[in-house]
Design a protein around this nucleic acid. Sequence first.
RNA 1: GCCUGGGUGGUGGAACUGGUAGACACCCGGGACUUAAAAUCCCGUUGCCGCAAGGCAGUGCGGGUUCGAUUCCCGCCCCAGGCACCA
Length: 829
Amino acid sequence: MTTSQSGKKYEFKTIEDKWQRFWSENATYRTTEDATKEKYYVLEMFPYPSGKIHMGHVRNYSIGDVVARYKRMRGYNVLHPMGWDAFGLPAENAAQKNNSHPATWTYANIDYMREQLRQLGLSYDWQREIATCNPGYFRWEQLFFIEMWEKGIIYQKVTTVNWCESCQTVLANEQVIEGCCWRCDQPVMPRKMNGWFFKITDYAEELLADLEKLTGWPEKVVTMQRNWIGKSTGLTCDFPVDGRDEKISIFTTRPDTIFGVTFMSIAAEHPLLDALLPGGENEDEIRKFIDQIITEKQRKSNEEEPEKKGIFTGRYCINPFNGKKIPLYIANFVLMEYGTGAVMAVPAHDERDFEFARKYGLDIIPVIMPEGMTLIGESLDQAYTGPGTLANSGDFTGLPSEEAKGRIIAHAVDHGFGAPHVTYRLRDWGISRQRYWGAPIPMIHCDSCGVQPVPREQLPVVLPEDVDSGNSRCDPLHQRPSFYTTTCPVCNGPARRETDTMDTFVESSWYFARYTCPRLTEAPIDRDKASHWLPVDQYIGGVEHAILHLLYSRFFTKVLRDLGYLTIDEPFTNLLTQGMVIKDGSKMSKSKGNVVDPHDLVAEYGADTVRLFSLFAAPPEKDLEWNAQGVEGASRFINRIYRFVENNSQSLTNTPSPGQVLSEADRNLHRRTHQTIRRVTENIENNFHFNTAISAVMELFNVLSNATEKEKRNTVDPYYVKEAMNTVLLLLSPMIPHFCSEMWERLERGSIETVSWPQWDAEAAAEERLTIVVQVNGKVRSRLEAPADIEDRPLIDMALTDDNVARFISGKEVKKTIVVKKKLVNIVI
RNA sequence: GCCUGGGUGGUGGAACUGGUAGACACCCGGGACUUAAAAUCCCGUUGCCGCAAGGCAGUGCGGGUUCGAUUCCCGCCCCAGGCACCA
């Protein structure tokens, strides 16, 4: 067209401002329940309001927004909310630094980040926005706490907890990553402390079993959760201590090896030791050893396993199965927290026991023989842990190990010294945090009445705004007498409020339910609305939450169901875990200096370009390598479409209906248009592979611009040009909504929001002629153009007479020919 | 060590259910336009051989099944993530 505007670019700033204002003024994405449409709840993990959005957010929310916009176009009533995971330590640190209040910092960040999200053109229903630090939100969490406590799902205990010195607070097991704090990466120390626990272990079995239902989750996440829950089935069995009344209870998953027990190992912290050690031969030495082990255990190194060591207690146990007398050792590798804190040792069939036995010269007696082999204790160089046939096992000798397990458990039950037992690796969720900026635990300690919940009408328990003498505005609650001094709701006597606040993972465990009724003041959850919208149809976020947040949310869903608030068993039907955004091969981080600020990019290229690139560069589940030149490419593509619309506005707006007979050029473009609709739809429906969806649209656009090049004398009826152009805009509109809205308005004088996702016409999409590959002995030798419906025989004849094919088969006998319809012919010689 | 993924051009990535390997894009090279540059447009772009037609090799490595393997099977190597004395 006219060369003067050949390099013209669209004004993204004007266009994006215009449409963001339009969507906001018209409340385009406001959602209410609508019985006439199928509901679709798409949710992205809400952000911590750290200050400004980063590339991970851009990616996460771009993906979610495409899903939301796509589903709207497919006719769903889409719920797509956004909010803030607003409690947490960084707010306290910032407040300390600026001598202000955590709330001030947090709300300022929220305002700034909300604006940043708005500038990305994300289609949220902002009316439903929630911030978890708002008492209107966390008051309901306090109510849940009280109801859970009343139901016995919450308890207090003093245990060794994971203490992070730098955060000055306790961490849950899940929050310790390789011995370090999940947030600040500093080493975690053990510390004895009183704290509040959620009995997530009561739900262990259901959390495990329901993983089966999560067919819309990545297998990887399901596996990680299954391993985290760590169910083991086996036998608990009592081994009497020789000459004493005490019995040592052990748990084993290998009851079939019980005749191979040659010693016992017990944890250094085991309470029975206090009864067993006094009066022994070298008690002092043993005590010293115990102290040493306990200190070493506390120095949880995140490197290699410490060397196994132990000490003989001087006591013996009796194996109840064969009456054998076996020595009792204290061993550093036995965990007090798992099973019973004591294990039967079968060195022939357990690697740890083997190592220990070799070190201390203990017997190794094989009792499981692998197929066709006879193991001999002295000559073993490692434990045999596989299945086999029992040997040296009394009445059980000769049984296969799997069968023997059941028979041996039954024997223990019959004789009253054992029982079948299931144990889990999962521990209860410690939620006490010794911090200020969190939801206060709504409990009161009274010396005469014990622990009492805050009366419901007194909720919420809010954070104190005032400053106690000598304290800063965010010092923890246990340093604030004006907060904790109270009276007992039962006896009215002096009492002390609980000063721990809740783990911030509690807030994020139920926010998806609150979005269905965010402003409700009478109750935490509107049952009708919740059951209308839940479960979340598509949840999207980073894999880093595979265990923490996703397990807690599943747990909370079941608890809230049991408390009568929810009617679902699982919160998230489909889960998409998007990969990280990386640059120069590693995760973007300040310390690496490879951070790309979305703010700068949006300013330079516009939101649509940034969105398009982050969707195009990789499929959502894979890591995305940020590439500045790739962003240029995305921008270039949008501008090419823009110039096409500019240069062809005449023919794109005035399109008389075409005649009945389509020219070949018409049919080709029309076909390509419908093939593209099919490809894009399938790419989105199957697995949200927007990268291939976008490349399909790029191909269509390339075909479209080639087909209309005057120099090539291609004449396509404007009607099909317009069909292709409109299709390009509709298919891209979930990804680059501002641009497509603007172009659509120019061409169609209407709002693209009201247009449905295009349907493909299977007939139009069908190929007329195909390229058929001809192979000779599986190697490609030629390609043929043939009608799509060609029969096998004429196709084979065509193949055999092809020049190049003939060269390869000349003088040789054709043994057979294979025809794959619409694909290839293979001639075997 | 165990459990997941994954390994394809210079780069990001495509390839339905065993059937044209490298779509789409980035980079790069060449050209057009321009006084010049940018922008834009066109052509080329897995390697090797060849003027070309075409040929040979090629999806981490080694085997196998098959008319045909990136795809299925067996044995290795490497990378990423998760778990890690869980009895």
